[in-house]
Design a protein around this nucleic acid. Structure first.
Lengths: 350, 350
DNA sequence: GCCTTGTGTGTGAACGGTAACCATGACAGG
DNA sequence: CCTGTCATGGTTACCGTTCACACACAAGGC
């Protein structure tokens, strides 16, 4: 009895044999060498005569041979697979980072396996780590920059490389952009335009990225001797921007708003527009991220650009560094964001 | 006999230290049973005395045992891994689909490995397929709905389950939303508001999704006896929407524009605004997709909602169906989109 | 002649699981 | 008492690679 259930009925004429993929031994036999020589050719070992190598390569082509990664992983104990834990994968940022990571991983010879999490509580994250471990990934990148994630990650099995993207935690190697500097850029830009102070619609307070942006904004205000209003907490959504934007629109003293991200800024722009407050003539708005659409907002959004793809690439670098050194360096890589001036910000009125 | 070999000191540049975790034999020894019994416990075989099972489970916990998936894959010839080929991963749609797929795959006991492609030419796609095959995935989902992708996918190794998301091709099982119906909904909505005809800024002509939307739009116009203008081809970007939008803005006879997606609509809105054409009073605009921000556009965008996450879930269903039946069914699953009325569309002027 | 050094290649043993096949003991029926 | 069945659990043979080592053969130094 065949263990194969793919043993589909052969139609007369259709000659699709139950192609049990060819393995090294088959290639070896065809090339007239031992399986070990095939292995040597595959792994670019020296000490194979060019002529032999060609024969082996020809045999591999003829049989359409592909090496079995499970067997390879079993014996080498290297899966060449990286795990990615992602939250809110639908946002532009995480998605771009995933993209950058995957491209980099590919050229470094790694595969990427994803585990998305619905929530950022400790259990969900540990579950995701577990799931990835079961696949014997060699390292994990977490695009889930809530504080709790960092600590959850820190207790991943030793010997597993780990990198946090975004604010991260203190216990895990992290790659992030310099949110504080970015926020300060935006704030200084607005102050430089003559605004007496700058309001801030922030991200959720338990996101390090949000906190760093708040810090940068606050420090820039402080350094300029400007009053420091209370930041308004949001959830990164356009809705939050809209709600707070309506309140700001009703307050004639508000002339400049720095938003925690571009979605928030979009919501704020709409609120201001609805209230009849002209942007940038009466109120200036600045965002953060530079999503592809922000140049087409009404008006085009002044913002701070994050290079998400670079974030992904750098996190791979950090991972590989750990993999090769064998220790969990506590490094923190920080990328400098770029200020992008568009027309949603202008001189203070009056 | 030395099961242990002495680990030579790590040479810099050498492979990382082998992670010596506990294996079945260790668990078996601790529990006082054979490794086979451990395997039986792991795989929920009957014929294990509850008392024995408990002893084994306790031993597994004590040793923090995790089974080695490579070994398992090697012998069972099932990797329990699915491959995902994604293009333009940064867009909301693909990202959400990935999310939905991963969630569904997880609860079905599968892992998901991603391969992103930079371009959609045949070679890139075949490369990605190759990469995934090397990981011995059991099936592939391609979120890369260009026509050429379908045909490239069709010649994936036999015995590999394949599903296309989006327009797909004729040769590959496909799950998509009913783009034609969605476009017709949008068009009929505008015609119903009294517009004599509807312009269309479309997606790239080699995307089946774009073509289906064109078809639906055209048929709806035709059925209503309205004139059918030439659709304007774009690339799904806000920029394309802006460029065509400017031309439409200069033409006073244009009162209704149906856009291939929400980004295009955003660009069109900006062009109309710049030209002083009021939306929806003078010109109505409708998008497609319902990205989370579209409710905060100026004005909030009337659009057609795609359930991307459902797309991901359904593609998993289709994949599993193939995996279990062993044949590449040529099924095509079509989801009905939902029309979402907001304020960017209104009665025809005059 | 010997031993060395260096190429190119083959041999056998892991790696950590699962499946097929046995072995044992208990209990029933003849 | 002999046999058959069932529950339980051990034995052994793989799966397809890579690694350590052995081996053949050549070139060179003494």
């Amino acid at each position: 009895m065949t263990a194969d259930r793919i043993d589909a009925g052969d139609q007369p004429g259709g000659p699709p044999p139950p192609t049990r993929g060819s393995v090294m031994r088959d290639v070896a036999r065809l090339a007239g060498v031992s399986h070990q020589t095939v292995s040597r050719v595959l792994n670019d070992h020296p000490n194979v005569r060019p002529e032999t190598r060609d024969r082996v390569l020809a045999a591999m082509r003829a049989l359409n041979y592909r090496r079995n990664s499970a067997a390879r992983t079993l014996v080498t104990r290297r899966s060449r697979t990286l795990g990615l834990i992602a939250y809110e994968t639908t946002l532009f940022g995480p998605a771009s980072t995933l993209y950058g990571l995957e491209q980099a991983a590919r050229s470094a010879g790694y595969f990427v396996s994803v585990a998305s999490v619905r929530a950022l509580d400790r259990k969900s994250v540990l579950d995701a780590v577990d799931r990835l471990c079961e696949q014997s990934v060699e390292g994990i990148v977490a695009i889930a920059p809530q504080s709790s994630v960092g600590t959850a990650l820190a207790q991943a099995p030793a010997g597993l490389a780990v990198v946090g993207v975004g604010g991260g935690g203190e216990h895990v190697p992290t790659v992030c952009i310099d949110n504080s500097t970015g926020a300060a850029m935006a704030t200084r830009h607005l102050l430089g335009l003559g605004h007496t102070t700058v309001q801030h619609i922030a991200g959720p307070p338990d996101w390090p990225e949000a906190r760093d942006r708040i810090d940068g904004w606050r420090e820039a205000l402080h350094a300029a001797g400007a009053p420091v209003p209370a930041p308004r907490p949001g959830d990164w959504s356009a809705r939050a921007g809209y709600e707070h934007g309506r309140q700001f629109a009703a307050d004639p003293t508000v002339t400049a708003i720095f938003c925690g991200n571009d979605q928030i800024a979009l919501g704020a722009l709409r609120a201001l527009h609805e209230a009849g407050r002209r942007v940038p003539d009466e109120v200036s708005v600045v965002g953060f991220d530079d999503v592809p659409e922000s140049g087409y907002f009404l008006p085009p959004l002044t913002t701070v650009r994050q290079d998400f793809a670079e974030l992904g690439r750098r996190s791979l670098d950090l991972l590989i560094e750990q993999l090769e050194s064998g220790v969990r360096t506590n490094r923190r890589v920080s990328l400098t964001p770029r200020f992008v001036a568009r027309t949603s910000s202008g001189p203070a009125p009056g």
